[in-house]
Amino acid sequence: MDLPINTVLRPASLAEALKLLAERPGARPIAGGTDLVVQLRDGRRHADVLVDLAKVGLAGIRDSERGLVIGAGTSMDAIAAHPGVRSRFPALAAAAARVGAWPIQCRATLGGNLGNASPAADTVPALLVAGAAVTIASARGQRQLPLEELFAGPGRTHLKPNELIVSVLLPSVRLGQGRRLVERFVKVGPRQEQIISVVCMAGRAIVAADGRIELVRLAFGSVAPTPVRARATERLLERKVLDGSLRHEALAVVQEDVKPIDDVRAPASYRRLAVATLLDRFLAEVARG
């Protein structure tokens, strides 16, 4: 294959990887490569030097006091299969299971899905509704960032060239007495597998016994330059009891939260109808109890 790459470096530790990224301007980290290799071949991204993260030890899922920590090198397949993710963050498990198809899921990593910064990244809406934060490292140290603040635009993050995503924190949910959690991920595309989302949505709601929505987070992919939280809609719904007119109003308000465009996958009008449909179905499940 015609890949314009001069050098591939294989650091054996995180410290070594960060050192290489600091020393070699133009170096780019690579994990599963399922996005990057295609983009390098097509000339959509460039890299003189690739820093292969395979031996850096960023894979793995562990519990911490604050929640579940998923290493950036964890594969989609491992995330989708992890019992803790499946029980506590079902939207993320569902999203990871819909990235590409199984062969892709076995290579693609969570860090790569974030670093690639696709507006259609399937895991991002699920992570957004989970209130995820990313831990970022460089040779100078570590910092933590709410996931929402990571993305700058299509294919662009606020990461500095020498920085690396090392893990993602999913805060634990404390569900009070009599509360129920509704969490969903839905992906819309013209075939069952191996498809880029035309629209995807994740939703999380905590509903009190009296039907009042205590917390609601809604996030969409492929409807804006980055995956987005539907903040206006969330504000509309929070602390209210869902009824027909509120549901109706939400479908109008959510249109302000998204800014879809016409592209080869669908016109903006289709995406707006899909956003309304997915939100309506999610709210129906929230109301159903």
Partner: peptide, 11 residues
């Protein structure tokens, strides 16, 4: 084949 959508075995 990313956007020219032929069926896969799942379809």
């Amino acid at each position: 084949f990313t956007d020219y959508v032929i069926p896969t075995s799942a379809d």
